[in-house]
Amino acid sequence: MFFKAFGGAIAAALLAAAALADTPVLRASVLKFGTVNWELDTIKHHGFDTAHGFDLQVQGVAGGSAAKVAFQGGEADVIVSDWLWVARQRAAGKDYVFIPYSKAVGGVMVPQDSPAQSLADLAGSKIGIAGGPLDKSWLILQAYAAQAQGADLEAQTEQVFAAPPLIFKSALSGEVDAVINFWHFLAKMEASGMRKLVDVADAATALGLDPNTPLLGYVVKGEMLRDNPNLVNGLAAASRDAKDLLAADDTEWDRLRDRMNAKTDAQFDALKAGFRAGIPDAGPVDEDAAARMLALMVELGGEDLVGDARELPAGTFLHSGS
């Protein structure tokens, strides 16, 4: 009986190993400390990848440019970027496809005791901006300030461009009067006592854009979608499974806390709330709304931002089951 049971266990293990060997690997290249790691960790921990027929392998990189180099060079199968970059690449002839990940955007933060009550009040101030002059949030806020308050933010303020962590530190140390940063840094600033002056989502709405349009997402190559649609749709399904869990289960966040770099309970709660607020609706992206955003980016950033893209290229967004 023992040998029969032992032999059965070996056979089962061999079958499991064979099944794993046949499971396609999906290599994701993402920022080592990016918030997407919370979702990817959830996918791996709960086996949402294998449940949807693939083995997710995460490669951490130091910056977005390194991820794009790995992706374009065939060293990675999926990265995280914004769909405006995907549209630019498609307009240049590269067949990339976007799978929505997050609609979370940043905003403008000022010290609690700042006299500023509107963007126009920032005239003469020093603003720290994560990224460069073509940062999407910065462009949207400039357009909003001009439309709503007749203010020229670029001309009337001094801009300091730097990486998000440096902008975060500059804000807390008082080296700048206001900051524009990614949502998770803003959540930490708010938890540390700073206040939000303007939310980019509110500015976008005032400009006629839809704040529910997801800006960030997973990017895959169209070749993979054509050759292995189950793999690409499996990634989308695993992502949704992880989002549903993170949206509803507080204990899952307790498990992730060590990865979140939250120094206080207030920061932890703010990061959790911010991630949940950024979860996009299930279903297809509203392409008309995306086209309006692209048109505004063409107007504000021109060729330097969107390249040859003048209208939304067909096939930019993944359609479920495609």
Results as ranks from 00 to 15, higher is better:
3 F>Q: 09
7 G>D: 05
13 A>E: 04
14 L>A: 11
15 L>A: 11
15 L>G: 02
18 A>L: 12
20 L>P: 00
21 A>C: 06
23 T>R: 07
23 T>S: 03
25 V>K: 10
35 T>D: 07
37 N>T: 13
37 N>W: 09
38 W>C: 01
42 T>Q: 03
43 I>K: 00
49 D>W: 07
51 A>N: 06
58 V>I: 13
59 Q>S: 08
59 Q>T: 15
60 G>N: 09
60 G>P: 09
61 V>T: 11
63 G>F: 15
64 G>C: 06
65 S>N: 13
72 Q>A: 13
72 Q>K: 12
76 A>N: 01
78 V>N: 00
79 I>W: 04
81 S>M: 11
81 S>D: 13
83 W>T: 03
84 L>V: 15
86 V>M: 08
87 A>L: 10
89 Q>L: 15
90 R>P: 03
92 A>S: 14
93 G>E: 07
93 G>Y: 09
98 F>N: 01
99 I>M: 06
106 G>K: 03
107 G>D: 05
112 Q>C: 02
115 P>D: 04
120 A>F: 12
120 A>M: 11
123 A>L: 08
127 I>W: 03
128 G>M: 06
132 G>Y: 09
135 D>T: 12
138 W>I: 05
144 Y>K: 02
145 A>I: 08
146 A>D: 07
154 E>L: 12
164 P>H: 08
165 P>H: 10
166 L>C: 08
170 S>Q: 13
170 S>G: 11
174 G>R: 08
175 E>N: 11
176 V>Y: 01
177 D>M: 13
177 D>V: 15
179 V>G: 00
179 V>Y: 04
180 I>C: 01
182 F>Y: 15
183 W>F: 13
189 M>Y: 07
192 S>D: 06
193 G>E: 00
195 R>Y: 00
199 D>L: 13
207 L>S: 03
211 P>F: 14
213 T>S: 06
216 L>K: 11
217 G>V: 11
219 V>D: 01
221 K>S: 10
222 G>D: 03
223 E>G: 05
224 M>C: 04
230 N>M: 12
232 V>A: 02
233 N>D: 05
233 N>R: 05
234 G>N: 02
234 G>C: 05
234 G>W: 04
236 A>T: 07
244 D>L: 15
244 D>C: 10
246 L>Q: 06
249 D>L: 10
252 E>G: 04
255 R>S: 03
268 F>N: 00
269 D>N: 12
272 K>D: 01
273 A>P: 02
274 G>C: 06
275 F>P: 00
276 R>G: 02
278 G>D: 03
278 G>L: 07
283 G>N: 02
288 D>T: 15
292 R>C: 05
292 R>G: 03
298 V>Q: 02
301 G>S: 04
308 D>Q: 09
308 D>V: 10
310 R>Q: 09
311 E>I: 12
311 E>P: 02
313 P>L: 09
313 P>R: 05
317 F>M: 03
321 G>P: 00
322 S>R: 05
